[in-house]
Simulated assay, not measured.
Amino acid sequence: MKEVLSLWQKRETERQENRMSYADKVFINMCRDIIENGTSTEGEKVRPKWEDGTAAYTIKKFGVVNRYDLSKEFPALTLRRTAIKSCVDELLWIWQKKSNNVHELKSHIWDSWADENGSIGKAYGYQMQVKHQYKEGMMDQVDRVLYDLKENPYSRRIMTNLYVHEDLHEMNLYPCAYSMTFNVTKEEGSEQLTLNGILNQRSQDVLTANNWNVCQYAVLLHMFAQVCGMKAGELVHVIADAHIYDRHIPLIEELISREPLPAPKFWLNPEVKDFYDFTPDDVRLEDYETHPQIKNIPVAI
């Protein structure tokens, strides 16, 4: 009887785990690893400061790599809600509007880095709208990616880069998520191509930005895949310096103590065939059940 009960409990545990959001599992494991095995910058010379002027120290891990299979699940946390429309609005601000002016963005996330005219300098969207000379003609980075995905899908040179050294002195902040590399594969027996991507990030504030960035670039892969007649595959997220700020540790501890819920279903308007026609309203998370949001998160500048 005990063996039967033990087997039932094991299967029930497996069923519950399979219902959990995979993104939650990745996030919980990453945060525990940082807290338990990371290194502290306390007492060292650090740039960020809290609003009261004190140094903002972190616990950090070098070289964190997380993988998400977008064909199986959309990687939105359920431990707390990720505002998908705001994520997409910011994503399109950079990749579609190619803007560096916060007045063209609905949220106020970037206001601290903007000048009196709303500009963040030659950062992010500015780099996306700069045209470069290619053999095929003048194109910006976004148009080059879309061109290659349609004309040269097996190219190993499909990538973007926002970390332009000659312009760093004119950026109000250096790009954190700075590079996307796209790679196309095809499953055996299938005619449809699969679009995969690697997001490279030099630095990440795990509490405030991790799932925000993951959801943004998951959406971008879905959008690019749709307009190029492909399906979304893997998103690989590489973070050189994944850190938790000292004042965020209690908030992270609370967050990762929560029970993960089932992942939401992702909907992208199938009528949109041109990347430049997408709006935040073309993206939706259905059956998105989450725990309460964590409020009053201090942000280091």
Rank of each mutant, 00 (worst) to 15 (best):
60 K>I: 00
192 Q>D: 07
17 E>L: 11
40 S>D: 05
263 A>C: 04
183 N>Q: 13
209 A>C: 14
280 P>D: 05
168 L>N: 07
275 F>T: 11
104 E>Q: 14
59 I>Q: 03
215 C>I: 06
181 T>S: 12
296 N>L: 08
114 A>P: 10
8 W>I: 14
157 R>C: 12
222 H>P: 06
216 Q>H: 07
144 R>E: 13
153 P>H: 01
131 K>A: 09
62 F>N: 07
97 K>V: 07
238 V>P: 05
203 S>N: 03
205 D>Y: 12
133 Q>M: 14
272 V>T: 06
15 R>V: 05
182 F>L: 01
270 P>D: 02
225 A>E: 02
4 V>P: 05
30 M>H: 11
287 D>E: 14
143 D>I: 08
91 L>M: 12
4 V>D: 15
204 Q>R: 06
89 D>F: 05
248 H>T: 09
115 D>V: 02
223 M>D: 02
50 W>T: 10
279 T>H: 07
37 N>T: 02
139 M>A: 03
146 L>E: 00
108 H>T: 15
6 S>D: 15
6 S>V: 11
184 V>A: 04
1 M>D: 10
44 E>S: 15
214 V>G: 04
162 L>F: 05
166 E>N: 01
280 P>W: 01
139 M>F: 05
247 R>V: 09
146 L>N: 00
66 N>R: 13
